[in-house]
Amino acid sequence: MWQQLFDSLKGHDFMVVAVAQDSGGAADAGKWIEAAHPTYWSLIDVDHRVSALYGMVNVPRATWIDEAGRIVRPPETAGSTDHFRNMDPATNTLAPADMAARQKARAYYMDAIRQWVATGEHALDADAARARLPRATPDEALAHVHFRLGAWLKRHGRAEEGATHLATASRLHPDSWCMWRQAADFNEAGLAAGPAFWERVRALGDKPFHPPPDLAGFRGR
């Protein structure tokens, strides 16, 4: 999906950096990267380091960085929406209207990126950017070290002890879907989308899973 965006912006001083938040590393993320044939930077982040540094709690999330290396849009949902929550659990399908709305929202976000690259539009000034930054708590900071340790132990044959640290991380930082889903059981498709996932989504109630980006005209659900 980013390849198309990147290709459409050839000739501009622009780069896409797509970072897989995958503790299993290439074993989990590799086949998706190979299928995408990326010419942009496609990186693997076994420690979810980017999420920790930028305060991202789900995927996909994105931040926009200008030529001087400054954040001009703090972490936000990268074009995804909550339409999947309307999915029919029996058939795992989405109504055509929801499918269309989802595609429209994604296209809208992609266009916003293109406008930014071409004209600078949608970049926030410093005060507005600062006001939208996520704020870490001591519990979240502690969660990240437990997550890092748990992921390391799991990769080094100590899955049981690793799981206790991953669970601690998730308890300390319950807003993080990345931490929860990375530790959850994967289904046959490699997705942490079993009954426990759907229960957790339902428990959000009116709260968004993918908060819509603050772009006039974007419809997230």
Binding site: W2, L5, H12, D13, F14, M15, V16, V17, A18, V19, A20, Q21, D22, G24, D28, A29, W32, D45, V50, S51, Y54, M56, V59, P60, R61, A62, T63, W64, I65, D66, E67, A68, G69, A78, I113, W116, V117, C178, R181, Q182, A184, F186, G190, L191, A192
Partner: peptide, 13 residues
């Protein structure tokens, strides 16, 4: 530096 960067996360799970 010198380029605009769209930094995005994703995951296989």
């Amino acid at each position: 530096r010198g380029k605009k960067v769209f930094l995005s996360t994703w995951a296989s799970w």
